[in-house]
Write a protein that binds this DNA or RNA. Structure first.
Length: 319
DNA sequence: GCGTCCAGGTCTACC
DNA sequence: GGTAGACCTGGACGC
């Protein structure tokens, strides 16, 4: 438990349209930083590491979708230097996707037979940016070869057992563990305590690799071209094509057996006979169809499956 | 109650 | 270079 008493207050002015609620609390429950964060009445309490600094974060919307303004209150355990403050402000704005201009994507989407159905429901939903590679990589590994319910259980157990707790503003919010923390744990202990099974070996190897401190940060990967960033991610233990597409800040088209079924129906009008074999075909078609907008297309479709299914009719039941 | 199958992938050995 | 098989765990299913 870390008590965070030092406060830093500032405002973020995202590029409109920007829906605070849809961005920090996605319709399908995707979180901003971790599964233990709390969203209530237009305010989000969460915790993460910003520039290596453990932070409790309170975000409140004080604007509208077309004139957005987000008030941020950052809690840390000590006062920050001027440059640390600037880094924290910049990273948080980036994390909530404040810099992204959705208008180009919407122009493309309005002309697309599939995407035109989803942009209305999700108007102003920005993609968010992970502040640490490790948390995204853990998420990706825990999604592998498991039903979503079990993935969530493994995720929560890992954070409960090894994550630090931020105590601030009357809240206690657990954060993802750091590479250093998990590098000190044996795979056997991790498997036993968190029931992550064979994934424990990959997780500990990954923690050891990232604890060295010489792997590029999410921002540094973003500064590379997409293929180079993905190539580096594929070198990490337990990270394959699907997981690399989840972690890559450039986005990708992360097709697994579940999304192969969803996008298979959308692209070809029918459920693939074998979802695992269809992954490659569906991925190829998504990248061909949406190119550099593949990730945004994936993101919007997945967040709007119920509505999309209704709009496209009973012939394509997606959810 | 018990056995079998397989899930929102990755890695390795083998050809 | 491509591909079959193993891999934790636990819920669903058939019997």
């Amino acid at each position: 438990m870390t008590r965070l008493g030092n406060k830093l207050k500032f405002d973020i002015l995202p590029t409109p349209p920007f829906s605070f609620k849809l961005t920090v609390k996605k319709p399908t429950g995707w979180f901003l930083f971790n599964p233990f964060e709390v969203y209530k009445d237009g305010t989000l309490w969460t915790s993460t590491y910003l520039d290596g600094i453990f932070a409790g974060i309170k975000l409140t919307s004080s604007g509208t979708v077309d004139h957005p303004k987000v008030s941020a209150l950052i809690f840390t355990n000590r006062s920050l230097s001027r440059s640390q403050e600037e880094n924290v402000k910049r990273l948080l704005a980036k994390a909530i996707g404040a810099e992204h201009d959705l208008n180009e994507f919407y122009r493309i989407a309005r002309k697309d037979a599939i995407l035109k159905h989803v942009i209305g429901d999700l108007y102003g939903m920005h993609d968010t940016f992970s502040t640490t590679i490790f948390s995204d990589a853990l998420l990706a590994i825990l999604l592998q070869m498991a039903p979503l319910k079990r993935s969530n259980e493994m995720m929560e157990s890992l954070i409960q057992n090894y994550g630090d707790t931020a105590e601030f503003d009357g809240k206690k919010i657990k954060a993802w563990p750091t590479p250093k923390r998990l590098a000190a744990v044996s795979p056997e202990e991790l498997a036993r305590r968190c029931k992550v099974g064979y994934r424990a070996k990959s997780i500990v190897k990954l923690a050891n690799r990232l604890a060295k401190g010489d792997f590029p940060t999410a921002e540094q990967l973003e500064d590379m071209d997409a293929d180079s960033a993905k190539e580096l991610l594929l070198e990490l233990p337990g990270i394959g094509d699907y997981s690399a597409d989840i972690i890559n800040p450039h986005g990708g088209f992360p097709i697994d057996v579940w999304s192969a079924e969803v996008f298979g129906k959308l692209f070809f009008g029918k459920e693939p006979k074998n979802n695992r074999k269809a992954v490659e075909k569906v991925k190829k078609e998504g990248l061909r169809r949406w190119g550099k907008w593949s990730w945004m297309a994936f993101f919007y479709v997945v967040q709007d499956l119920d509505n999309l299914s209704r709009k496209l009719g009973k012939s394509i039941r997606l959810a």
